[in-house]
């Protein structure tokens, strides 16, 4: 009874708060000052066709570094908590049920296409929507499909660790290169490479390189999270 009363009071509080937020909404006729600054300067200054990318990678590069670190810590935490000890490794892996023929054939057909789509998303991050995080997640879902279709599938941990570590390290090095070349507040400046022609794939300076590194890092990290969750 007390519990239900408490829940009801909490709900009323939430409703009042949300209503006040809702009643204060007014439709904006233009961009706010910060948004206008980004929208006007993004294309000419950094050469990116997708303004979101210019904000995520360069203007707010430190935030992205924070996001990458959060994901890295999460992946490490899952690996530490769910690690399998060598001695109690079960020997009954053959008892698992095989997945269906449809899933196996579909996986064989779709996996290369999904991986290619993921690479497309992060290589074209400066031109079209999406980028390193989205492309990495798509690649991880291809790995997930492999796990589902073959119950004994194992990822190459050594290779994944090398890719993850190198892309993370190079990402930070590129960021620091910006500081060395342009001064203290230019972390992850993409103008360390020539800007190129606007709208082509090799444009926007270092952004395709940065997003490729982020994509590889996120993809391998999410894949190893899934791998750790799957082990039993």
């Amino acid at each position: 009874m007390i519990k239900k009363l408490f829940a009801a009071v909490l709900l009323v509080f939430m409703a009042v708060m949300l209503y006040q937020l809702y009643s204060n909404i007014t439709e904006k006729s233009g961009l706010s000052e910060v948004a206008r600054g980004y929208a006007e300067r993004g294309a000419s200054e950094l050469g990116t066709q997708n303004i979101v990318t210019s904000i995520v990678v360069t203007y707010r590069g430190l935030d992205t570094l924070g996001e990458v670190s959060v994901l890295f810590i999460a992946a490490t935490g899952v690996a530490v908590l769910l690690r399998r000890r060598k001695e109690d490794e079960p020997a009954v892996t053959s008892a698992k049920r095989q997945s269906s023929e449809i899933l196996q054939t579909g996986t064989r057909l779709l996996t290369p296409i999904i991986v290619m789509f993921g690479v497309y998303i992060f290589v074209n991050g400066h031109l079209s929507p999406g980028g390193g995080f989205q492309g990495g997640a798509v690649i991880a879902s291809a790995v997930l499909l492999l796990f589902l279709s073959d119950t004994n599938y194992k990822i190459n941990h050594g290779l994944f660790n090398i890719i993850e570590s190198f892309s993370g390290a190079f990402y930070v090095l590129i960021g620091i290169l910006g500081i060395l070349l342009f001064g203290a507040n230019h972390f992850l400046d993409n103008r360390i490479l020539p800007l190129g022609d606007f709208g082509t794939i090799l444009s926007a300076g270092a952004i395709p390189v940065i997003y490729s590194l982020v994509g590889l890092k996120v993809g391998t990290e999410l894949a190893s999270i899934i791998d750790n969750m799957k082990k039993d």
Binding site: N50, P129, G130, F133, Q134
Partner: peptide
């Protein structure tokens, strides 16, 4: 679309 892709994946 950027957020939509992340949310879907």
């Amino acid at each position: 679309p950027d957020v939509a892709m992340t949310e879907a994946a």
